[in-house]
Design a protein around this nucleic acid. Sequence first.
RNA 1: GCCGCGAUGGGGUAGCUUGGUCAUCCUGUGGGACUGUGGAUCCCUAGACUCGCGUUCAAAUCGCGAUCGCGGCCCCA
Length: 418
Amino acid sequence: MIQRPRGTRDFGPSEMETRRYFESMMRSICLAHGFREVQTPTFEHTELFTTKSGPGIIDEIYAFKDKGDREICLRPELTAPVIRFFINDLTNYPRPLKLFYFGPCFRYERPQAGRFREFYQFGAEVIGSSTPEMDAEVIGLAASMLEATGLQDYRIRIGHIGILRSLLAEAGVAGDAALPILQKLDKKLYDEATPLMKGAGMSDDGIEKVIRTTQISGPIDVLKDYEGEAKVYLEEVFDILQHYGFRNLQVDLGVVRGLAYYTGVVFEVDAPKLGAEKQICGGGAYSLSELFGGEKVHSTGFGIGFDRTLIALDKEGSLPMKVRLQAYVVPVGESTRSKACEITAMLRKGGISADMDLMRRNMGKNFKYADAVGAEKVIIVGEKELETGSVNVRDMASGTQTMVSIEGLISYLGHAKS
RNA sequence: GCCGCGAUGGGGUAGCUUGGUCAUCCUGUGGGACUGUGGAUCCCUAGACUCGCGUUCAAAUCGCGAUCGCGGCCCCA
C-alpha cells in the first residue's frame, strides 16, 4: 500500500461538497465587493520568497532544483506571487486593482492539528494606494467572508504598526533597527525585547511605554490617550467600518506582524477553539512591489486559512448538510431498463440530478440504496405505468407515491425541489 | 529540527499490564431470506494487528528503529 505523503490530505465526496460550498460562498462575496479572481502557478522561483521573507524561509518551504538547474519552490503563500503577477503584467489596469485568489500552498513543517504541508489559502489584495477607505474595504471583506460562513467564535483584532514604530523612532530607534524589536514584541517576548531596546539606547520610561502600548486592546476609544498620524488613521478606518455596519471589531496594538514590508494597518483573526493553530486570517497594508523590482505601490491584503476556518466551523458543529440526489431511477424489471435510461437522461438534461440502478438489483435493494445515498425521490419505471405514459414517483421522506406523466416529470421534480 | 502521546478490517473498538486456540464486538460494503416497493430483523460472504529488525520454542502483546497521526515548541495560515 502506498501512503499519502506526510501532511497531505485526501478529500472524500462529502468533504468536497462542504469545501466547494464554502469556497463558492467566499468567492461570491469577493465578487459582490468588486474583486476579481486571479490564479498564479503552484511553483515559483525560490527567489520570490527569499526576497520577501529572507533566506531563512528556505528551511520551511518545499524548495528544489529542477532539471534545468533552476531554483524552484512550491509556493508557501500567495501574496508574493500575486504582487509578482501585478508587476509583470497588470500594472496598466485601472486602480485600485482589487484581486482575490484561492489555491493550495505548501510548507515543509511539522504537521499537527490545523497545520498541513499542503493547505488552502483564500485571500484578497487591493493594489494602488494607501487610504483608510482601502484598508477598511479589505478588512470589511475579510469580516464579511467570515460572517457569511456562520462562524461564531472569532476575534478580529486590528492594529497599526505605525504607532509602535513612531514610539521607537522618537526614542531614536528607526528603520531596520526597529525590526528585531518588533518581531519580539509581536510574540509578546518582553524579556527578550527589553534588552534589545536597552541596547538601542532607550530609556526605561520609553521601554515601558512601548510595552504598555502592545498590551492595548478593546474598542476604538482605548486610543484616546494616543496621538499622531497612525492613531488618527486607525480611527478613520474604524469609522468607515462602522458605516459599513461592522461591530465585532477591536483594536489591538499588540498585532505587530514583524515583517519589514508592513507599512500601516495590520490585522489578525483567530478562532480560540482551534488551540495552538488558532489564527485563521492575517493581513495588513504593505509595500512589496519595489522589493521585486517594480514601482513602489501600496497595497492592502489578507489571507484566510481555508482549512482552519472549516475546522473551526466543524468544532462549532455548523458544517452544512450534504448535497442530495434529487432522483433515483429504478426499472422494475429487465423490460423497462432501456426506458429508465431514457428517463434518467431526460432528467439530467433538464437539470435534475439523477442516478439510476447500475447493479441490476431488485426493488428492495434499490430502495435501500436510494435511502443510503439520500435520494429525495425514487422514480419507479414499470410496465403498468408505462402503458399510460407515466411513472410512479415515491417521496423517500414521506413514503407517499404519485403517478406522474413522463412529460411532466421535470417540472414536477423541479417544483418539489424547493 | 525539538519534546511528549499514540497506531488492530472502510469507520469505531476488545485483547497488550501477566507473550501461548482460527484476534473480539458494533457499524458500514456485497449477496440472500424478499423475482413491483426502503429505513426493521435474521443468515451468509469479504475485510485488520502500520512497516522493518531484534528477544523468544512462540510476538498484536516485550525491545529498538522507521513511517504516519495527535498535543505542544519553532515558525506561521
